[in-house]
Amino acid sequence: MANKTKQWSAGDLFIPGLGMGLAVYYLYTVRGLAPLAQLYGGGLSLICIALFLAAVIMVIRHRKNDSAGGFKKLNSLAAVHKKFIVMTVLTALFIVIIPIIGYPLASVLFVASTTIFLKYGNPLRVMKVSIIVTLVGFVLFIIFLNVDLPLDAVTEKLKGVL
């Protein structure tokens, strides 16, 4: 375990790299402000940059020798994490279509497409699950908790009646 924690790969630089990117952008946006306005975030940004450099040193000194190490780790994400990538894309599409076709229809499409992708079962089972999940969401959030989500014309009328 101790040995494992000492191993670093180039893929491990993704998060510190993201932190450093944000830190540089942060410093750019607070330039020229009063010292007190720069103090907290500016200090954090400098720490993030220093930690990125420390991570780079760790990668150079303790680089893994296994095949999954190095940039291969990130490159192989598409193959190894296919489900994650498809789920992310489907979720993004779900968010995109909510304001266009309304939450209920978007939810049915989202749940149906994800369960088909995850090979949940035959189309009838998929339809059943999609409708049940959407119905629970509709009743709970829109009817009971009065959440103002975009709706299509039919459900808008239904909400008004209920």
Binding site: D12, I15, P16, L18, G19, L22, A23, Y25, Y26, T29, V30, L33, A34, L36, A37, Y40, G41, L44, S45, I47, C48, L51, F52, A54, A55, M58
Partner: peptide, 27 residues
């Protein structure tokens, strides 16, 4: 080191938005 990187990254994400003294938007 990884714990500190994650924590500092979170703190920096939390520092996005108006600053509390001068109300200047940041990052």
């Amino acid at each position: 080191l990884k714990g500190l990187i994650a924590g500092m990254f979170g703190l920096l994400l939390g520092a996005v938005g108006y600053d509390h003294v001068y109300s200047v938007p940041r990052a």
